[in-house]
Design a protein around this nucleic acid. Structure first.
Lengths: 117, 117
DNA sequence: CGTCTCAATCGATATTCATCGATGAGATGA
DNA sequence: TCATCTCATCGATGAATATCGATTGAGACG
């Protein structure tokens, strides 16, 4: 904040010479970032993120037949979104009788939350 | 956990009768969820998320010319990703001479982090 | 068994998106 | 003024994705 006035590199330099401190980026962090991107991508659709929001507000489980009328898409489309969320480890489901009940698996969201901290 | 054994609805019911407690989802929460989806979507690409990771590790700013060799894509592609991050309010940039320096704007990430809590 | 219901899957389609190469914009310096 | 450098933007292309309607599969019930 205070003494960074000379961060701007000199324009005159040998070709290929770096303009500033070289940035290092370990493979370990790269792998973790890739995992976080998978979670964020699953949350990156408005419908999917709203589904997660609804599930979190109803701390137990929510039946798919209750989820469908909340959104302006067909049942098959919502099922597709639920699969994406399942594949990312964000939600899971349990069948009872004819119905399927979905619930949030907090671990994935907590992973992302921690990464953001 | 303990007393949810009778959550499964009776199969026999009048047509159209809900299978469980109706779910409500206020428009206010819906709007907030849409905003979070924008942020999550911007983070949902491995390269973009790694860019944010690098910028966070270098608390000040990082020159684009240092960013480019870190990733296996061309300069124009990286510029495209940086624009996406800018549009989502996650990063911002400042030009000094020929160079452009990018830095993280913590607010957007903090918004998402708070939502995840 | 046959039929009904709910949810998952399939196939098709239109849109979005990541990527590239080329070009443009702006600054620097000869 | 002109060449060079960095980065942003443009246009095109192939891949991924969101969506739909139709079908399938699994349970429940009679």
């Amino acid at each position: 904040m205070t003494l960074e006035l000379e961060l701007a590199p000199k324009v005159k330099r040998a070709p290929g010479e770096p303009c500033c401190e070289p940035v290092v980026y370990p493979d370990v962090e790269r792998a973790e970032a890739e995992r976080m991107a998978v979670i964020a991508k699953a949350l990156g659709d408005p419908i999917r993120l709203q589904v997660v929001d609804v599930l979190r507000r109803h701390a137990g489980e929510v039946c798919v037949c209750e989820l469908v009328p909340l959104f302006d898409v067909g049942q098959s489309t919502l099922s597709h979104h639920l699969k994406k969320l399942r594949d990312a480890g964000i939600v899971d489901s349990q069948r009872r009788g004819l119905w399927a009940y979905y619930y949030v698996r907090p671990d994935a969201l907590e992973e992302l939350r921690t990464w953001l901290s």
